[in-house]
Design a protein around this nucleic acid. Structure first.
Length: 856
DNA sequence: GCAAGGTC
């Protein structure tokens, strides 16, 4: 039978669409990557009975990157990233084997129906899918075999409509996304690498190890700094108001507001006070009663949820999304990433409501709504992506956990509020004439609380009851005074305000806004203060002021919208992909060169907040080139700096660094340093030069002497390696010569640490191998008086893994069980991830012979 | 190590 393959953007949509098209009659199975499902059913396609296979991807299949050699920060000039550096598409998540999965499922299919989300990104993913599956699909001679389904919501009507009006994927829209990806990659990486390297090499106490730049994150930071500048430049101003107090009966005084509100001149204020004081009476000029409405909220979309999460629940946007994601995958709420604020026409409002009928918190309101009739939701915007966020299932706090419950509670209350009545209240305003001036006071009385019963934090604050009175009534003036006040500065931006600004200027999307905000926090450009207000750091301020000084467009929110306008021309078929891309790259390349040439402008600002690298840090190890002391700089990313050679050498992070006995690397003469991790007590020496410039082809970057394959150096794993790691596949257990008297060997790849021979006087790796397991033998020397060795021997040479004499002196514990020597005989019982038989232990080989071919 | 965009 002819098979039709259909692909959606995510597993949940594949399921929904399959359920609709198969009328609930499909069989489902897991795909080979365990994330995606395949739903199969029989149906009619182009008047023929066919087999449908509905599956999905997980967002983008591919992502763009430079080819590997252009990802070396030390060897590539960032300017090359604008044109010279080739890019390639890589699988977003190689572990998912998405291409393979799609190919396995598509093999033999005759037709492909693309059900990706109906936006430009979705269109782009269509072609990613297409490229993966087309080579394996069955070739048939037919006018069209690839179809695009365009749906505006996930409802039976819309899905069937889309199915019956299949079109074709839009290449231009997909290309506009390709162009956006390439621009973002080239521009972002070029600026980020240049800034990072430039400032890292120049300032010692920078508090970020990465000085990133991006067309979304930089304007986001810009908003925060803009507010900071407003606060800084704020000049308080004095102003004066008249406070008036009147009464009808003395025990019920009324405080009135002046109709002119305030004046900025004290003399003028005093003049008005004098005019007012001519009268001892206040005459009621009018009493106006108005019925007012506070409207129920629109259906909930992502950004509104993020705003409320931040402002009312105290949860940051990134965290709110994590919690929402969990609620969604557990089936408690609908899909949490949507811009839509309008329920689809056939949305089951009552059904959704009924699920909440037994809640002890809002069950009563729900019952009332169901028996008295629900209100029509307000008309919102339907962007055609996903329905608004609603509860899908009743839940309890115990099931969801504290934050999960708080978010669920909000989403549910919000949903019920959207089908509740508006809040209605009566506003009474009494106007008084006192002398020549008019004063008012107003009060509110509730007519019906409506939806605010569910969202009490939005309830109107009721003021004191006003006295009953009518036009012409006379009150006694109790007090008139001129009060001096001061204008106050604005406060730092709250996350909620920032989200609003980003949304308004089109910076990021519902899904990426939290990521950008999180980025500027992680890079230490802003800190989150009390009340989730974002306060820029010195670094953040200097960067933004620097951009303003050099090229303000780099930080203005228009940077994105201008580019997007151009990209849209590609999508509309009015401009060619290459033309637009080249044009934009050209502009940004020039901007980049201008920025590089003008960087001293930013330096002038940096110097105020940060100290030059030459002044920072303390002398530690000697440079192999000039034999002078290099300085150890500990700020954010620790490194060594040689002020004489003006070179900076990076070091491993998250641990302590100290000089290693003034020992030197035999290759470059640099003095070795010792890295010690705090928690696991692992340590290894490293050469500051080799760490960034691996001397051997098989040595990775950023590793210590314990992974160095130098054939004879006393610190390399050739000299100190004992045997294959008991846990990982590629590591070697290396003796830690600094660990005495609590001797240990640790894996040079993973976290395994093996303690042995406590209190031994000396532990040395011998030349011979163990006959049984091929590991190198170890010679241990104990103090004669306290030796744990049999027959008061003070010295013994044997295999750490196999020698019975050593058995009680090596704390191999569970790790032992997986060593080749101890395999079999049930010893591995309960040891979890069995890997099956492995090859013989990798003993450190003698590489002397290979040396010539080896050196780079 | 870098961007922004999908999604898990």
């Amino acid at each position: 039978m002819r098979t039709v393959m259909m692909v959606a953007e995510k597993p949940s949509l594949a399921q929904s669409i399959a359920r609709i098209l198969s009328k609930g009659n499909c069989t489902s199975r897991k795909g080979l990557n365990a994330s995606c499902f395949v739903h199969e059913f029989t149906g009619i396609f182009q008047g023929q009975t066919v087999r449908f296979k509905m599956t999905s991807v997980c967002g983008h299949v591919m992502s763009l990157d430079f080819i590997a050699k252009y990802n070396n920060w030390d060897k590539v000039d960032p300017a090359e990233l604008f044109s010279k550096a080739p890019t390639e598409k890589k699988e977003v998540n190689p572990k998912l084997h998405m291409v393979k999965f799609l190919q396995v499922e598509a093999r033999g299919c005759e037709d492909l129906v693309l059900w990706l989300d109906c936006d430009k990104e979705g269109e782009n993913i269509c072609f990613e899918v297409l490229e993966a599956v087309q080579p394996v699909m069955k070739t048939v001679i037919r006018e069209q075999t690839v179809y695009r389904a365009k749906f505006s919501s996930i409802t039976d009507t819309d899905i069937w409509k889309a199915f019956n009006q299949l079109g074709e994927p839009n290449l231009n829209e997909a290309l506009s996304v390709d162009a956006r990806q390439e621009l973002d990659l080239r521009i972002g990486c070029a600026f980020t690498r240049f800034q990072t390297k430039y400032f890292q090499g120049k300032y010692g106490n920078l508090d970020s190890s990465l000085i990133s730049f991006g067309p979304c994150q930089t304007p986001t930071l810009g908003f925060c700094v803009e507010r900071h500048d407003k606060i800084q430049s704020f000049k308080p101003e004095n102003y004066w108001v008249i406070h008036a107090q009147v009464f009808k009966s003395k025990d019920n005084p009324l405080f009135l507001d002046w109709n002119r509100v305030k004046v900025f001149d004290k003399e003028v204020g005093q003049m008005f006070v004098n005019l007012v004081k001519t009268s001892k009476e206040a005459q009621v000029a009018s009493v106006i009663k108005k019925e007012k409405t506070k409207p129920r909220p629109l259906a909930l979309n992502t950004v509104e949820m993020l705003r409320v999460g931040s402002s009312s629940l105290g949860m940051g946007p990134q965290y709110t999304m994590q919690v929402a994601e969990r609620l969604y995958t557990q089936g408690f709420i609908s899909y949490p990433r949507t811009e839509t604020t309008h329920y689809p026409e056939n949305f089951d409002l009552k059904g959704t409501l009924k699920q909440q009928i037994n809640s002890r918190f809002w069950g009563e309101e729900v019952k009332n709504l169901l028996s008295n009739g629900i209100n029509h939701p307000k008309k919102g915007v339907d962007v055609g992506d996903h329905p608004p966020i609603t509860p899908m299932h009743s839940a309890s706090e115990e099931e969801l956990g504290s934050d999960g419950w708080r978010l669920y509670e909000y989403i549910t209350r919000h949903f019920i509020a959207t089908v509740s009545q508006d809040c209605k209240y009566l506003q009474t305003t009494i106007a008084f004439n006192i002398g020549t001036e008019v004063f008012t006071c107003s009060g509110k009385t509730l007519i019906s609380s409506g939806y605010t019963a569910l969202m009490p934090w939005q309830g109107i604050s009721l003021e004191e009851d006003l006295p009953l009175c009518g036009r012409g009534d006379i009150f006694t003036v109790d007090e008139i005074k001129l009060v001096e006040m001061q204008t106050s500065p604005p406060d730092y931006l709250t996350e909620a305000e920032l989200i609003t600004l980003m949304e308004k200027h089109g910076i990021g999307t519902d899904a990426s806004i939290p990521v950008h905000i999180n980025n500027i926090c992680q890079r230490n450009y802003v800190t989150v203060e009390h009340g989730r207000k974002l306060k820029p750091t010195n670094l953040g301020i200097v960067l933004v002021h620097g951009y303003y000084k050099i090229d303000a467009e780099l930080v203005l929110p228009t940077i994105r919208s201008a580019v997007e306008k151009q990209l849209n021309l590609i999508a509309l078929g009015q401009a060619h992909f290459q033309e637009v891309l080249q044009h934009a790259l050209d502009i940004f390349k020039r901007k980049f060169h201008y920025f590089v040439d003008s960087i001293c402008g930013m330096d002038e600002l940096m110097e105020v907040s940060f100290s030059p690298i030459a002044e920072a840090g303390k002398p530690m190890s000697r440079c192999g080139k000039c034999r002078r002391f290099m300085k150890f700089i500990q700020a954010k990313s620790s490194r060594l700096h040689c002020s004489h050679c003006d070179e900076t050498y990076s070091l491993p992070q998250n641990g302590a660094i100290k000089l290693y006995k003034e020992l030197r690397c035999p290759l470059d003469d640099f003095e070795l340093v010792l890295w010690t991790s705090g928690t696991r007590g692992k340590s290894y020496p490293l050469c500051p030069y080799c760490f960034s410039n691996p001397p051997f082809r098989d040595m990775k970057k950023n590793v210590g002497c314990n992974e160095c394959s130098h054939p004879s150096c006393q610190h390399s794993f050739n000299s100190l390696g004992i045997g294959q790691c008991v846990e990982c596949d590629s590591g070697v257990l290396v003796l830690d010569p600094t660990s005495a008297p609590k001797w240990k060997m640790s894996c040079n790849r993973c976290n395994v640490v093996v303690h042995f021979f406590e209190h031994a006087h000396r532990v040395q790796v011998a030349q011979e191998n163990c006959n049984a397991c091929d590991a190198l033998l170890v010679t241990v020397v104990f103090n004669k008086a306290q030796t744990p060795l049999p027959a008061c021997e003070s010295q013994h040479t044997g295999c750490v893994f196999c020698d019975p004499v050593f058995q009680d002196l090596v704390a191999l514990k569970h790790a032992t069980m997986r060593h080749p020597m101890h395999r079999g005989g049930g010893a591995r019982r309960g040891q979890g991830r069995g890997r099956g038989r492995r090859g013989p232990p990798k003993k450190p080989k003698d590489k002397m012979a290979e040396l010539a071919a080896y050196f780079v």
